[in-house]
């Protein structure tokens, strides 16, 4: 009975979003009989320049860009691996498990850094830290937190100001949220104390970074934890009130990863696209790469990137996930 409940919770987003896509766009030669199908968790706006550059270089090629959440993406792909050519996701653990389970096709990229590829099948192409994002206006005279500990203290000290105004990922819905949460929990007990504090403040739970940033911008949220820094930075320029803070004690950074489906209908185009992606990444922002390129080393962000390692599968273990979510719910949800 309990298992069934957990299963339903786990598959809930997938069931919900099965029918339609968050976004669905086609690039390039619309006459092309079979487009390259890219399954992605990344907003189209970030990927449009990359794909545009690709189709410009490859005449007669069309690209179909399908966007969905990380957990849904994983489920869809496992269901029909032959329907997609390239899978791009920010959930490194899910991606690694796909590769480990044999869903990915190999590709030789000797010039690509070793730490950013796994088994010649999974390729990281960004370094994106998880950030604390605050609305400066709502903080007003309060000092901006520099670390998780700062955040805990400021939240505890001002429950009236922050009740209902704090937000984070719903790890049950979001693959990326789950990844960030598990990595945080692995690093420090501070995570659980923060979750408890946020639970007491009636934290709002989100499926995606985009919505969290929207709410921050409108002032519905004063602070959001574990937001994708890259998305926040992009929005911070338009909404002046937003401030992106990388926790000083241990910023967690993830790599956005891509793999080619082993059952890809168009393997050659898929390989060409991946090479194009990696190449563009290597050029960085100057070459028009819209996402934060790979950090040259772990020290660049002052913290640790989550490494591509079979251990990423640890928290995907059914029992581990069940126990983690239970604990997380105990901390944040059942405070209601």
């Amino acid at each position: 009975m309990r298992y069934l409940a957990v299963l339903i919770v786990a598959l809930w987003p997938a069931l919900l979003a099965a029918a339609e896509w968050e976004d669905h766009q086609t690039f390039g030669d619309t006459e092309a009989s079979a487009p390259l199908r890219i399954l992605s968790s990344t907003d189209t706006s970030f990927f449009a320049p990359i794909i545009a550059a690709f189709v410009a270089r490859q005449p007669g090629v069309a690209v179909e860009y399908l966007v969905t959440g990380t957990a849904d993406l994983d489920a869809r792909f496992r269901d029909a691996p032959a329907a997609y050519d390239v899978v791009i996701s920010s959930a490194m653990d899910l991606q690694l498990k796909l590769a480990n389970d044999g869903f990915a096709a190999p590709l030789d990229m000797p010039e690509h850094p070793d730490r950013a590829q796994w088994h010649k099948r999974l390729f990281g192409f960004t370094t994106e830290p998880a950030a604390i994002v605050v609305n400066k206006e709502l903080f007003a005279d309060l000092p901006l937190p520099r670390s998780r500990q700062d955040l805990i203290e400021v939240l505890r000290a001002n429950p009236e100001r922050f009740t209902g105004k704090v937000g984070t990922y719903d790890v049950r819905d979001s693959g990326l949220g789950y990844l960030f949460a598990t990595q945080d929990a692995r690093s420090s007990e501070t995570f659980w104390r923060l979750m408890e504090v946020m639970g007491r403040l009636d934290a709002r739970l989100y499926c995606c970074s985009g919505e969290m940033i929207d709410d921050l911008a409108t002032g519905r949220l004063a602070v959001a934890y574990n937001v994708l820094g890259s998305y926040a930075e992009a929005r911070a320029t338009e909404a002046g009130a937003l401030t992106v803070i990388l926790p000083s004690e241990f910023p967690t950074a993830m790599m956005r990863t891509a793999l080619i489906s082993r059952a890809a209908p168009q393997p050659e185009v898929a390989k060409a696209f991946l090479r194009h992606l990696i190449q563009m990444q290597a050029g960085g922002g100057d070459a028009g790469f819209p996402l934060p390129p790979l950090a040259t080393s772990n020290d660049a962000t002052g913290g640790t990137s989550i490494s591509l390692d079979p251990a990423l599968m640890t928290y995907l273990d059914r029992m581990k996930r069940q126990m983690f979510i239970q604990e997380w719910e105990n901390a944040i949800v059942q405070q209601d």
């Binding site: 590769a99 480990n100 088994h119 010649k120 079979p310 251990a311 640890t314 581990k320």
Partner: peptide
């Protein structure tokens, strides 16, 4: 079984062997 991260982490190899 609440096995630690290290259980699978220790299996990392230079050739990124599947586990």
């Amino acid at each position: 079984l609440d096995f630690p991260y290290a259980s699978l982490s220790m299996l990392g190899t230079s050739a990124d062997d599947r586990v």
